[in-house]
Simulated assay, not measured.
Amino acid sequence: MTEIPPLYDKKCQCLHCKKAFTTKKVRSRYVKVLEYDTDFFPTYSSEETNPILYYVNVCPHCGFSFTNEFAPSFPPGIKEVIEEKICKQWVPHDFGNKRTIQEAINTYKLAVYCATLKREKHIYLAGLYMRLVWLYRTLKNIEQENRFIKLAREEYMESYMDDDFKGTQVSDVRILYLIGDLSRRMSDLDQAVKYFSKVIEKQNQTIETKIVEMAKERWFEIRDAKKAKEPIQE
């Protein structure tokens, strides 16, 4: 009996040029999460079956890069901008095969550029930046991880202020928690405490009790760390 491989070809249609192409995806049966970090970074059982590597679709024809969350429509005049800034600069490259972490990082940076030009929601840009944080953490590249932590926090804050996460799968509680955890990772502890407190205040209004518990854990960790640094009173 032939074993079914972890990766399969998914047919896609480019949102911009409308041409068809295929890209690799991971079969769900092979996706096994071993643990999650405090910012929901999943550690998978193997790099080969890490679906984060295949999250972005890159059109090999025109270079437009997108995820399934991108809106199918384009604001007026934006297709012309994309044609000029992306398609005319595109050196044909096919990201439709098995990807390394570095190749995946390249696809995310392309998607960030496309999402910015296309004026996608802040919540979707934040998600792209978050996954770049995770990929750089996997590579133990602290400098780049910290760079994208800052960018992810900015986009989550913009999303929360604009309410553009409404109607997506991301709740206000999750956004507030992530702003808190990213702030903690940036050593912006006052901001971290502020946003963890906002999560805790919503504990009677949300079904996401696990996130509330995580916010409490982080809040106590910060409090205890601050206490440990306080000078001893004589």
Rank of each mutant, 00 (worst) to 15 (best):
E80S: 12
E80V: 08
V81P: 01
V81F: 05
I82Q: 05
E83W: 03
E83Q: 12
E84A: 13
E84Y: 04
K85Y: 08
C87L: 09
K88Y: 11
Q89H: 14
Q89M: 13
W90V: 10
V91W: 02
H93D: 12
H93M: 11
H93K: 14
H93W: 06
D94M: 14
D94L: 08
D94Y: 15
F95R: 13
F95G: 01
G96L: 09
N97P: 00
K98I: 08
K98M: 10
K98Q: 14
T100C: 07
T100Q: 08
I101K: 01
Q102G: 00
E103I: 01
A104H: 02
A104T: 10
A104V: 09
T107Q: 02
A111F: 08
V112L: 09
C114E: 01
A115G: 12
T116Y: 07
L117F: 13
L117Y: 13
R119F: 02
E120D: 06
K121L: 05
K121H: 04
K121R: 14
H122M: 01
H122T: 07
I123G: 05
I123T: 06
I123Q: 09
I123D: 04
L125P: 02
A126C: 08
A126T: 04
A126F: 03
G127W: 01
L128N: 03
Y129I: 00
M130E: 14
R131P: 00
R131H: 02
L132T: 01
L132D: 00
V133M: 03
V133D: 08
W134R: 11
L135Y: 01
Y136V: 02
Y136Q: 04
R137Q: 11
R137A: 03
L139M: 11
K140E: 11
N141S: 11
I142D: 15
E143S: 12
E143K: 12
Q144F: 01
Q144N: 12
Q144A: 06
E145V: 00
N146F: 05
N146R: 10
F148V: 03
I149S: 02
I149A: 05
K150T: 12
L151W: 00
A152P: 04
R153E: 12
R153G: 09
E154P: 02
E154C: 07
E155D: 13
Y156A: 06
Y156W: 10
M157H: 11
M157A: 15
E158I: 00
S159M: 08
M161E: 15
M161G: 14
M161Q: 15
D162S: 15
D163T: 06
D164K: 13
F165L: 03
K166L: 09
T168A: 06
T168Y: 03
T168V: 10
T168C: 08
V170K: 09
V170Q: 10
D172A: 15
V173M: 08
R174M: 08
R174E: 13
L176P: 04
Y177F: 11
L178M: 15
L178Q: 15
I179F: 03
I179K: 05
G180R: 04
G180W: 02
G180N: 04
G180Q: 05
D181W: 05
D181K: 11
L182V: 12
L182P: 03
L182M: 09
L182K: 07
S183L: 04
R184M: 10
R184V: 01
R185M: 11
R185V: 05
S187Y: 10
Q191H: 05
A192R: 04
V193P: 01
K194R: 14
K198G: 07
K198F: 04
K198W: 07
K198L: 10
I200P: 06
E201N: 13
E201K: 14
Q203E: 13
Q205F: 09
